[in-house]
């Protein structure tokens, strides 16, 4: 039951883009076409889950025992940068077709604040999910990270669909491009606000 609540909460109630404002730059950048949007979502999903696993372990077994929590930011971003690079190399060797699909997005992911954001959130914030407020254990953290990235994918794919239609419509000159996109996201966010308070 708890895992189910985590999933609903991370995808709909606290959607990473529409409620937490993380990962907006790539969200606006690559949501022009449905195909690139879904490719990017998959790459993000992969990296967020992997990065959360590694940073959670590093925090638990390296930073906390030696009281080095103040190095969290610097350690996490280095791990993420190295991880992205490694994923790129491994993917190139192991599955060239997957590399073709995700490869171009991978370098962009290091500076996607959603990845660092989720990694920091799961080790610093207390959650409830129907239980008394507590820190997440590794299993919960992984489910949370995975579900959050699914939420990212959902927001991305919905928005790409909207933008494909927007591209065909006649928009006033000053609104063209990002402004009209932001206004559309605003309306989308309003729809997602309907979920607020559903899961605590």
């Amino acid at each position: 039951m708890e895992y189910f609540l985590i999933i609903i909460s991370a995808i709909f109630v606290n959607n990473i883009v529409l409620a937490q404002f993380l990962g907006i730059c790539p969200y606006l950048g690559v949501s022009n076409k449905l195909s690139t949007a879904s490719g990017m979502s998959m790459a993000v999903c992969f990296v967020i889950t992997l990065a959360t696993l590694v940073t959670y372990l590093i925090n638990q077994y390296l930073l906390v025992p030696f009281q080095l929590e103040f190095l969290q930011t610097i350690a996490f971003i280095l791990v993420i940068a190295a991880l992205v690079q490694m994923v790129e190399i491994v993917l190139k060797k192991v599955s060239p077709s997957l590399y073709q699909a995700l490869g171009i997005f991978l370098p962009l992911i290091t500076t996607n604040c959603a990845v660092l954001g989720v990694a920091i959130t799961v080790v610093t914030k207390e959650f409830t999910f129907g239980l008394p407020s507590h820190m997440l254990n590794l299993g919960e953290a992984l489910v949370y990270a995975f579900a959050t990235s699914l939420g990212y994918g959902l927001a991305m794919v919905i928005f790409a669909g909207i933008r494909e239609h927007l591209a065909l419509s006649d928009v006033p000159k000053a609104f063209k491009g990002v402004p009209i996109a932001l206004v559309s996201v605003g309306i989308l966010a309003m729809a997602f606000m309907g979920f607020s308070g559903m899961v605590k």
Binding site: L18, L182, V183, V185, I187, A189, F192, M193
Partner: peptide
């Protein structure tokens, strides 16, 4: 959240 997107959009216009 929605207000953030809407305001930024209109300010950009």
């Amino acid at each position: 959240a929605p207000g953030a997107f809407l305001c930024l959009g209109y300010l950009m216009v």
